[in-house]
């Protein structure tokens, strides 16, 4: 890790002023559970680190049954888990937090940091850049791609978005509020992520001198929801595939559905195909299975990750069934 300047401003205005307009110069620090390991592995070498810990307004959890939820970016996973206000209307957000089954990550990791954590691709983390390239060529297609993308993977990016919160937040229609030198702007979370085409781009629409301040979740309006993550290990591991489902039901019939997959593509992966397969149907095992098949119909697995297609299908199926049976 290289020596850096450390700043701990107390307002978001001050924080933004401390940030450079080019990536690489400065980094924002929340809980540090991702940033510090990247810096230790020389994956990031900022000249200045700007901690948001002292910006009090970023810690709010506000719920209003008609307008919905405002989560400050610095809310920790623990605070989210402990919040009765979130648990009742948004049980799937709690499930997502529970999936990160580590007391340490719960205590230190923040919701904002979870949305902005960098990909876990082992080539990226091993020093081959965000696009995992050596001599201008990606190492992934012919390499150890068992955990890489099966959708949206025509290159040059093959990593998967690692966030457990992004899929369910997108399914709930959440927005993120970003604050920069020109003030605040809101971006719908489903438009926020993108697939980089060069290694110095980021995989989301945040400017180097902006910070994420809030996550705005519309009122759930009685929607049923669930996330399902296929995990090889119980703790300290990422899902192999995941799905988040929000169902608006009319009696037993699906009026409309949102289905978003995780860990399958460089971005969280909304599936209009699965949503169409559910619309107007009564949820059953076979309907849920069809939704899973529809979601993966266009999958293009790499040499070692065809199994993830099946896992993602199952994740969709089980999330649909759990949502229909389950909460909110």
């Amino acid at each position: 890790m290289q020596a850096f300047e450390y700043a701990s401003p107390t307002s978001k205005e001050a924080a933004v002023k401390l940030l450079a307009s080019e990536w690489g110069e400065t980094e924002v620090l929340a809980g540090g559970t991702d940033l510090l390991s990247l810096m230790k592995d020389q994956g990031s070498a900022p000249k200045r680190v700007v901690s948001l810990a002292a910006v009090k307004e970023l810690k709010a959890i506000e719920y209003n049954p008609s307008t919905g939820l405002r989560l400050g970016a610095l809310v920790t996973l623990r605070e989210l888990l402990d919040s009765a206000e979130v648990r009742k209307p948004y049980p799937a957000l709690i499930e997502a937090a529970e999936g990160v089954r580590s007391p340490q990550l719960h205590s230190m990791g923040t919701v904002g940091g979870d949305l902005l954590q960098r990909p876990r691709c082992w080539y990226y983390r091993g020093g081959y850049g965000l696009l995992a390239q050596m001599d201008g060529k990606s190492l992934v297609p012919d390499g150890e791609n068992q955990y890489h993308a099966i959708l949206g993977n025509s290159g040059p990016a093959y990593f998967v978005n690692p966030s457990s919160f992004a899929p369910i937040l997108i399914a709930l229609g959440a927005k993120v509020r970003l604050f920069g030198p020109g003030g605040a702007r809101d971006v719908s979370l489903d438009k926020f992520y993108g697939t980089p085409t060069s290694a110095d781009q980021r995989e989301y629409d945040l400017k180097p001198n902006e910070i994420l301040t809030d996550i705005l979740v519309p009122a759930a309006g009685g929607a049923k929801m669930a996330v399902y993550e296929v995990r090889q290990k119980e703790a300290l591991d990422w899902p192999l595939a995941a799905a988040a489902v929000v169902l608006n039901l009319d009696g037993k019939t699906v009026k409309s559905a949102r289905v978003v997959l995780g860990h399958v593509a460089p971005t969280p992966w909304p599936s209009p195909e699965a949503e169409a397969a559910l619309a107007g149907k009564t949820v059953s095992e076979s309907v849920a299975e069809e939704a899973g098949k529809a979601a993966l119909a266009k999958a293009t697995p790499l040499s070692k990750n065809a199994y993830k297609v099946q896992l993602a299908r199952v994740a969709v199926k089980r999330a649909v069934l759990a949502a229909a049976e389950g909460g909110a």
């Binding site: 876990r120 080539y123 091993g126 050596m134 190492l139 390499g143 090889q232 290990k233």
Partner: peptide, 16 residues
Amino acid sequence: DATTGRMVNPNMEFYK
């Protein structure tokens, strides 16, 4: 990794 000849999981995250 066949191309680089390096271990891709030399940490306690991916060395499960």
